[in-house]
């Protein structure tokens, strides 16, 4: 079983936000209108955060943050209804109909990348045709987050099956990694020693966010700079 993971090279990343928009288009993420957004209720499964350099006040860095798909996720044990769990693929999954909206998981997540649907999703009639049929639309009152475009994995598996072959890592990548124009995001099997993602994850520049918490994220970052 592959261990799906991602490497984000911060030296390549320019904070252009192509991943952010790609994710929203792919996953039917609802718009949060101005008055609601003012309450910080915007949903963005992947988004860019600004980091201030501690050593110099006039330095800033961009860091794309998304669900880290931890091997030891802090968000799953707190769910009272089993709506969020680590699935067979090792991805942290979210079952929307089970979710009761208690937001324990969102509070337990140290990376704060779980989002609560404060409002029923709304699209103008014209725009409903753009919704991706592979991804369910979330109702009001549930928590949602990055799935590593799990629906793409399901599709790729089915396709491989009908073509009577093994699933190869090239068959599957999430929308953000596909869009990333700087080539900062690399996706693949962390356990396959020959894959690019596994090799990059052993780079001396590699680090994980809040490593000390022992969450063992499957999103690895590469430090910017020489």
């Amino acid at each position: 079983m592959p261990r799906w993971g991602m490497v984000i090279d911060l030296d390549r990343c320019s904070g252009c936000q192509a991943c952010v928009i790609a994710c929203k288009q792919e996953n039917n993420v609802p718009f949060i209108l101005p008055e609601q957004a003012a309450k910080r209720r915007t949903i963005a499964w992947i988004h860019i955060i600004q980091l201030q350099d501690e050593r110099s006040e006039t330095k800033m860095r961009f860091l794309p943050i998304l669900c880290q798909h931890c091997d030891r996720p802090p968000c799953t044990p707190v769910c009272p209804v089993g709506a969020t769990y680590k699935n067979q693929e090792g991805l942290v999954a979210q079952v929307y109909p089970r979710c009761i909206g208690c937001r324990y998981c969102a509070n337990a997540c140290p990376y704060t990348i779980k989002f609560f649907n404060w409002y029923p999703p709304q699209w103008p009639e014209e725009m409903k045709k753009s919704l991706n049929p592979d991804v369910s639309v979330r109702p009001k009152g549930v928590v949602e987050k990055c799935t590593f475009c799990h629906h793409r994995l399901m599709k790729a598996k089915e396709k491989a099956k009908t073509e009577k072959r093994e699933l190869s890592p090239e068959d599957y990548q999430p929308a953000c990694a596909q869009a990333c124009p700087t080539g900062a995001m690399v996706f693949g099997d962390l356990d396959d020693p020959y894959s690019e993602v596994a090799q990059l994850s052993k780079d001396p520049r590699a680090f994980a966010l809040m490593e000390d918490l022992g969450t063992r994220p499957k999103v690895i970052y590469l430090r910017a700079g020489a």
């Binding site: 192509a18 952010v20 928009i21 790609a22 288009q25 014209e126 045709k129 869009a179 080539g183």
Partner: peptide, 18 residues
Amino acid sequence: RGKLCPKGQNGLQVLYDP
């Protein structure tokens, strides 16, 4: 080369603009 900027990714909101 298979990549796109954020504006390009958002092209559908031009097509479906109500």
